[in-house]
Amino acid sequence: MGPVISLRDAVSLSGRFPLLAGVTLDVAGGEVVHLRGPNGAGKSSLLRLCAGLVPIASGTAFVLGHDLRADRQSVRREVGLLGHASFLYDDLSVERNVRFAVRAARADLRGVDEALDRLGLGGRLRSTLVGSLSAGQRRRAALAVVVARRARLWLLDEPHAGLDAMGRTSVDELVRAASASGTTVLLASHELDRASRLADRVVVVAGGRVVAAAEPGATGVPAAQGAEGDETRQIAPAGEAEEDGRDVA
């Protein structure tokens, strides 16, 4: 089976400003990949590109077998994106929001109850208007949409942000369970230790490019979240490391 995500020199622009400056990345089915990098590195843009939300200006990009240059609509139907925004309607209940997303994706409505329960949104909360939720509950509701849609590829942007300890643990469990069932997960997170424990591979993004990749425990995988240089200086380029067949160091 080919990679779930296959990007080659993918460039994405916002006007004339490059969001991604030539990303090359392969992600296999069932793999959990942790994207790390400083603010503005291009992690969120990379997730949005893989979700089919931003167009590709040059290079090639295949997600779940679909060519993003030709067919972004099919990709959107098959991925679940947890972005900075919740993508939810304030004047609909949690359950209505999730049901709408599931129906739109033509997924099985039986996944709704399960997703709400797993994210602690059962009982009274399921009929609560999203506009009345706390930030953490809202985040969980947004994640419930991703889970309930039973997407084959999860794209999670700071999935632990705004969650309490129990919520963070729930996210970890969901990611592990998804991966075990063959779902591919690409997650961008500044929670380095937590995300690295979940991941099969860490990919460092800086300046709109993938600058390194390694297994989570590999020596030299940076922990810093400061300037771009802090992220990149200790790491060999991804391609070079792979070609040498050694750990990134």
Binding site: A51, G52, L53, Q73, S74, R76, R77, E78, V79, L81, G83, H84, A85, S86, F87, L88, Y89, D90, D91, F100, A101, A104, A105, R106
Partner: peptide, 17 residues
């Protein structure tokens, strides 16, 4: 306006509708 709140318009695009 209801699609402009909290990224709902992106949600609409992502919905696959």
């Amino acid at each position: 306006a209801i699609e402009a709140l909290d990224g709902a318009s992106d949600g609409l695009k992502l919905s696959g509708l």
